[in-house]
Amino acid sequence: MIKLRFASPEMLVDINEIPDLGYHRIDADGSVHVGALCRHADLERSSLLATRQPTMAAAAPLVADPIVRNRGTLVGSLCHADPQGDWASVMVSLDGLVVAQGPRGRRTIAVKELVHGPFQTTLAYDEVVVEAIAPAPKGAPAGGYLKLERRVGDFATVGVAVSVDRTGDEVTRAGIGLTGVGGSTISADDAAQLLVGGPLTSDAIGEAAALAAQAAQPRTDHRGSASYKRHLVSVFTSRILTGLIRSQEEAA
C-alpha cells in the first residue's frame, strides 16, 4: 500500500518490538487466543490448532505465500479489513472477537462488527488490537476453509470458512464466513443457523449451501462473474460440510 503510494501515512507506529504479543494459546475452555504479533507461519505450524481448531488450521497455510507468512499476522489481517482477507472469514465463522486497547483501556469487538467497509474498521484512531479470540466451542469443533486461488499468493476469488461445533451428532453452533464476495467479509448467518439443532445431513448441507450462496454479494470482475462466485460459495460450503460427515463416518 505504501510502496504503491496508495497510502502515505504521516506517522507509522511499529508494534513489532512490543514484547509478549507473539503468542497463541488455547485456554482450558477451548477458546483460542492469538496475540497481535503471532505470525501466520506460527499458526500454520501450530500443533495446537491442528488438533483443536480445524477451521483456523485449514486456513493458515492458504494465507498469502510462505515467505509473507513469516511476517504477516492474523490480527494485522483482520485490521487491514481487506474483503479478500482470509482470516476475517475464519474468525467470523468462529464468532470471533478482537481485544482493542487505547488510552481509555480495553474493549472487545466482535469481528463481525470490526469492519464497516473495504479497508475500514470501527477502531478509534488511538486504538490498536492486541489480541484476537475464537471463543470456546460449544462442543467438539470441526470445520474447514476452502479458497479458489489461481496460484499461491493470489487473492481469493472466493473463500469459504465453515465452523461447526457438535455434541454427538447434534450441531450446537455453526458459523460460515465468506471471503471476496462483498464489500467486506460476509457472515452467512441464515445458512449457519439452519445447521444448528440437528445432525449434518445432505439435505441440510444442500440448503445451507444455497443460503450461503444467497448471502454472498459478489461482483463481476476479472476474477469471474458474480454468478460463478456465488456458485463457488455453494460448492465450497457443501464440500466442507460433506467432508465433515465423511470424517465423522470414518472416525466411527
Binding site: 510502496k3 505465500d65 515467505i67 509473507v68 513469516n70 511476517r71
Partner: peptide, 21 residues
C-alpha cells in the same frame, strides 16, 4: 512492489522475509 516475487528474500532473525516489505 507488491511482495510477490521474492527476489529480495533475506533471513531476518533466521526466518525468510521479503526485505522490500
Amino acid at each position: 512492489d507488491t511482495s510477490n516475487c521474492g527476489a529480495c528474500t533475506v533471513l531476518f532473525d533466521g526466518k525468510p522475509v521479503k526485505s522490500c516489505t
